[in-house]
Design a protein around this nucleic acid. Sequence first.
DNA 1: GCACACATAACAATCGATTGCAATGCGTTT
DNA 2: AAACGCATTGCAATCGATTGTTATGTGTGC
Lengths: 338, 338
Amino acid sequence: MTDMAPSRVRNIAELALLAGVNAGTVSRALANNPLVKKETRERIQALAHKHGYRPNQMARRLRIQETRVIGVVVPLGHEKRQHLSDPFFMSILGHLADALTENGYDIMLSRVIPDAEDWLERIVDSGMLDGVLLIGQSNQFEAIERVAAWYKPMVVWGSHKPGQIHCTVGVDNRTGGRLAGECLIAAGRKRLVFLGETTAPELHERYRGLCDAASAAGLAKPVKLDTHLASEVMADEIAAHVERIGAEADGIAAGSDLIAMHTVRALADRGVMVPRDVSVTGFDDLPLAEQTIPRLTTISQNIATGARAMVSALYERIAGREGPSVEMDPILIRRDTA
Amino acid sequence: MTDMAPSRVRNIAELALLAGVNAGTVSRALANNPLVKKETRERIQALAHKHGYRPNQMARRLRIQETRVIGVVVPLGHEKRQHLSDPFFMSILGHLADALTENGYDIMLSRVIPDAEDWLERIVDSGMLDGVLLIGQSNQFEAIERVAAWYKPMVVWGSHKPGQIHCTVGVDNRTGGRLAGECLIAAGRKRLVFLGETTAPELHERYRGLCDAASAAGLAKPVKLDTHLASEVMADEIAAHVERIGAEADGIAAGSDLIAMHTVRALADRGVMVPRDVSVTGFDDLPLAEQTIPRLTTISQNIATGARAMVSALYERIAGREGPSVEMDPILIRRDTA
DNA sequence: GCACACATAACAATCGATTGCAATGCGTTT
DNA sequence: AAACGCATTGCAATCGATTGTTATGTGTGC
């Protein structure tokens, strides 16, 4: 008999047959279980390697009842056209991925448009996940609360309302909005505008904070201009806003860094200089905010710290311990635009 | 009997017991199989809804032998410290996610540091994936070829070497590099520099293209300065490069948009104006490249188109048809920096 | 020489669903 | 009234692994 290229072995039974032992023994051998004689163990391991056998994870996880997969879910309720390419999602996702893979967890990524009533139930109940991380509450507060009542291993990035059940990690968005407002006011700006979509609680809080700052300084209530976060429509929308605002406003608090960057760009296109003519603040402190010209003044969300906080809160919950929500302090990063 | 909160049903057997039928019937009923009488079907569906029952996907997929999960894998061989937060990965990932979720596929995200010899085998052989998309070849060409020899449903973003087995989608990086070089030369630049890490085939090809352009114009071979893509070290590294180059170079071809943006920033910090004193080109054409000030001149990778091409090539391969690699033409996007 | 302990490995139940096939019951036809 | 067809449902094998329990054989002690 010639030594053919070893045929690919698909399941443990085939390998057991080849080794002349029972499937159970193969399983133990590959797990390095000392119940199996060292000699047999090594023989089976060598055979497995030779035939390129690797256990079917689906079967294994079904039996073990543990998947070592974490779902990372982005609900896009208020923003159906938004893409995952939004830098904020991507940035936090990157850090989550780093933290999770370090501990041997895989990541199942879902971008969900919550049209079906039970979208979240379907995810947590799929039997494929050991836990769920939600990036943003969108307009799905109710749905999240409903599930959080019985499903514990879930942590949400977003803002914390008093009395809520689900565990959140996030910054104090209202304070963040206030900081942005105070920064603009300190720069001598009096006619403030907020750019952002306020159906998501986070953005709404930021707007409220801005209003707080304005009223504390005796200024008129800032105007709110709805702005989508979807990259494609966003640019045009902001351009239109900027066109309309004209000289009406001199201080712009953007709901996110991305909006701020587009705004600065749109202003520059119309010959309006930042920060000479108008001050602009962002929100998030993306890595890129420091690299733009002019560099963006913004409110830091400290995404790396937040991601780590989410992951460790989730680990606690997977282990059965329920920790409290985490609310981080926002920090004003004063750069060039305000 | 009071109407208690319906207890949560965990598996199909329990529900079958409640409904007073066999598990098989429940399975068919929930699948809306007309073999089950309409009346019974609706009764079971109502019962399932009431008790919040949802089938265990792990078990289902094991039985069906189809997971409807696609692995999206980022190999980080040459770049151990790189994070997923790299905007290029994130941008393409966003588009892939959009294309895949449209067809009801879930995404399993892996950021792999290929230290184990059989990292890719382990992924494709896990039994959890219907197909694999690799973002970038890193320095793992051999490993990819080895697996591609027997595992068909896999598509790779990267460059295509003649005679290779695995299916790639990407732009012609060499031509792209040449375009960048010609653009710099057309701007009157004579002392060219390439910023990038050339152990990955894509980046190496870009450098070769730049060299082509230089030699065609009778210029000296461009200097290559290794630059990591990892966000944290990158900024300092580029600053150091810029410091050292000084007046030595007047045309900089960056290996990616991100490197280009950092470079412009670093030059600005030293009082060097772009494009007055130095011309800079990027590579990728990220959405952000258009929003920076000055706007980035770059080589478009057309990420959205590429992502769609990857996904449809993968669908073909899942269906058993093996299509060829796709090589898209790079396009010079002339903006402000060169 | 018999009982006992111990090391190995086989056996079989289990995880939770899907599905081909067999069985049941009812109505219709001749 | 027997026979046949059809609509429903039950039964049991299956996907591929893990693991508690049982069986086998070997060596030791008395």
